[in-house]
Amino acid sequence: MPLIATPAIVLKVTPYSETSKIVRLLTRDHGLVSALARGARRPRSPTGAGLDLFASGVAAVRMKPQTDLQNLTGFDCTRAHANLAGDMARFGAAAALTELALKCAPAEPHPELFERLAEGLDALDRAGSDEADAAALSACWRFVGALGFEPALDACAVCGTPVAAPVTFSAVQGGALCKAHRGDGERHTKLGEADRDALRALLDGRWPDPPLDARHAASHRRLLMTFIRHHVAEDRPMPALVFWDRESWNATSS
């Protein structure tokens, strides 16, 4: 049973027995890993306190062939991301990003996805309150892009014909559509020049200029959610995405 050490992010923590935890990790070198952390619920466990949702660190895992549950022998937490619990919108966004990794990442190693998740959680943790919406949207769009589903913005998603703003955007078809492919009866979103630039900035990991106000952030969130439902989530329920949208809206309306 080889002992491996790999950068890892905690995606889910489930209590197991009186003293242990089962964790789901996205690791850089070994993809998605489920592992039993024996004794991690004990107050003096060397791994327990840092082994929490959204935490980044280096995991030491004893890999057993032919089993889905590995043994976590250590977790050296390097970033706990404590700020992510500070407000509902940020917490919901971090959970939605984590849910994408948990449910949509391939089981095999995918270093780019790992980096996107790590960057996204870091950016969300650091972002000021006026930047949190943009940081969350950018992190999710970039993760979706790394999964291979980046939306087409400058050319028709169906035929590749260049399209100019204002763009007819179809979350279902995967991006901008030319005149010939705007099917009747399907719901589209009109993206003006500024909206398209904002979406391009989010996909590139930049904050839109001018910054997104609450109404535009909500529109971008809805677009992202529809896109994820059609292309990434398929029929899987995504409760954290729903939580994020509802709590972000509550935060701006209260």
Partner: peptide, 12 residues
Amino acid sequence: NPSVEGEATAHY
């Protein structure tokens, strides 16, 4: 609990 979810609940 002093976990991320417990902290978020506390802030809420």
